[in-house]
Computed example of a mutant assay.
Amino acid sequence: MKNNSYEYDVALSFAGENRAYVEEVANSLRIKGIKVFYDLFEEANLWGKNLYEHLSEIYQSKARYTVMFISGFYNQKLWTNHERVSMQARAFQESREYILPARFDDTEIPGILKTVGYIDLKDKTPEELATLIQKKVTKDQTFFRKKWSKLSTMVSAKPFIFSLKVSDEKGVNIKNANVVLVADNSTYLEGITDEKGLAHFIIRTRKVYTVLISHPEYPAVLFKEVNPKEDIAVTVEKNNSSGSAIINKSGQIPAISGKLEPLLKQTKGFELYADNIAIEGGKQQPYEFELNKSISLEDNGGNVIHLTFRFFQGRIALVDYSKHKPL
């Protein structure tokens, strides 16, 4: 953000099912002289535009604040999730509050902590909320005009959004796949695919990543040296006998009880601790393992799986597992 002026004082992000309430707020704000982005006020301007790009720009750079109207409906919409990712990219960039949550209910929204202050709409009329927004905008405008020039010199390059889509060989979107981007310095970003098979990441530093993808019903996927400047689509072929998982420091595998903790050896190689799990029939722990070489695990219920580490860097591991020993 290089300029200290905004096209809008506030942008409103909401689900269509909550439009009646939000429209009253928008109309009240306009009467109060607040520059507000509300889609129905912008019909002529939005006509013919690439809405994906245009709305991303509005929620990321053209409004001083965004009011997020949180509800169960909001969490289910593709467009509101796109708006949310754009807002959070902006919020990461600035050392101040930018997203102003207003709750119709207690729905959890990714990236919105429960400790963030919010307005409970059960106790607020649209007019009362509009008055609160007006106070927020007018109170902070003078302060940020004075401070913005110093703040802008502290802000890093503008974040951008990287999206990855996961589907199977039949074109069916894969929901709840775990996706992790691991940089060369072992820092990482985590995401989960939504009902559209999409995982979104806010990229703040330009690095090349290793992309890890796992799902209990699909084999592990690994891509190296991925440049996040362009979105990518990944096709995964299903294998009925195997699944995959990503272990961050320590974790569990769905097919077996107990906890696994892989570690880098102080010298060279890898070793594994397994809590309440026998490794290779009861070998001494920590057990030394190799990438792409299967090991057997058995829990206290007699369940046996064959585990193969496909990737391990820092504290992030990508594994395949199956009840059948790989050929």
Rank of each mutant, 00 (worst) to 15 (best):
Y8M: 04
D9W: 04
V10E: 07
A11Q: 01
L12H: 08
L12F: 09
S13R: 01
F14A: 01
A15M: 07
G16C: 01
E17R: 06
N18H: 12
N18Q: 14
R19W: 10
R19S: 11
E24A: 03
V25L: 01
R30P: 04
K32A: 11
G33N: 11
D39R: 14
F41L: 14
A44P: 09
W47A: 15
E53F: 07
H54P: 02
L55G: 07
I58T: 08
Q60P: 09
S61T: 14
S61L: 08
V67P: 06
M68L: 13
M68W: 07
F69K: 05
F73H: 15
F73S: 15
K77Y: 02
N81Y: 03
Q88E: 13
A91N: 06
F92G: 04
E94F: 08
R96M: 11
I99D: 02
R103C: 12
D105N: 10
D106M: 02
I109D: 04
I109V: 11
K114N: 09
K114V: 00
P126T: 04
E127H: 11
T131W: 04
R145I: 14
R145S: 15
S149Q: 14
M154A: 14
A157Y: 14
K158C: 10
P159I: 03
F160D: 00
F162N: 04
V166Y: 04
K170S: 15
G171Y: 05
V179R: 00
V179F: 08
L181M: 13
L181Q: 04
V182N: 06
A183C: 11
Y188F: 12
I202E: 02
I203M: 12
I203F: 12
I203L: 12
R204G: 15
V208H: 08
E217N: 10
P219M: 05
A220W: 03
L222Q: 01
K224N: 05
K224P: 03
K224E: 08
E225Q: 13
V226T: 06
E230T: 13
D231S: 07
V234N: 06
K238P: 12
S241G: 10
I246F: 02
K249W: 01
Q252H: 07
Q252M: 10
P254E: 13
A255K: 02
E261I: 10
L263Q: 11
L264T: 15
T267M: 04
F270M: 13
N276C: 08
I279C: 03
Q285V: 14
E288H: 10
E290S: 13
K293Y: 13
I295G: 01
S296V: 02
G301C: 03
G302R: 03
N303M: 03
F309E: 05
Q313I: 05
G314S: 05
V319F: 03
D320H: 09
L327E: 10
